[in-house]
Amino acid sequence: MTTDPILRLENVHKSFGETHVLKGVSLTIQPRDVVVLVGPSGTGKSTLLRCINLLSPPTQGKIWLEEQEITAPGVNQDKVRQRIGMVFQDFNLFTHLTALGNVMVGLTRVRKMNKKEAYDLAMLELDRVGLVDRADHYPAQLSGGQKQRVAIARALGMDPHVMLFDEPTSALDPELTGEVLEVMQQLGQEGMTMMVVSHEMGFARRVASRIVFMEGGYIVEEGPPDQMFDAPRNERTREFLNKISSFEDNGQGE
């Protein structure tokens, strides 16, 4: 394929004071790619996602979103974030708003839609994640899986070009991960470009177009799932994927 990449990272570094977390990450993502990012804890996966949507901009290196270099000085970061949806491990739903309100607030405040338009679109997004009947519930009245689906609907409402997921199911009870993964799989099939930090290897095999293995602030290896699981080139990749896959086979996964 020779399409233009939707997201391109070039030698991205990120330091927090003395701590050097990302040490030169380069990555190209094509439209409709579903990239699953794996790696040991503390490797910088979350940091990488937060760099991409500029929640904490890189200290060095460049990032392009579609044709725009978003790390260039003078870029309107709020506008960039509208085009990049993000879903968090602990949901971060707005506590004081209903499920519907959570989806609508971005539409009315950021996309400046009127109430009616926003309502219609928000209901559409809630329908996409199967939660129309929970529209009037407050976050505290929803299960973890429902909260995460609302969070996905909230992100989708902004009409993002890319979606980032940071361990979207790891705060959930095992029996609730399925409903969230299903929604994500559906999204992938609809052609959404996604970058997912997750250790759900079943999901990775089924849905990912590519797996990226990160360790110590670098990308160690990347490739299609078959290759990464069955014939990784790097010894560390093999060890790590074996470890988490066997962990899952022992009944911890789906």
Partner: peptide, 30 residues
């Protein structure tokens, strides 16, 4: 008000002022 609220608001493209006004302040007032 948890830090995640600000993060989530910024992540959907709100400016800091917008996030304070429509997300943080309503919760803090309650």
């Amino acid at each position: 008000v948890g830090e995640g609220q600000m993060t989530a608001a910024r992540a959907i493209g709100m400016s800091k002022g917008q996030a304070i006004r429509s997300i943080i302040l309503p919760q803090a007032l309650r």
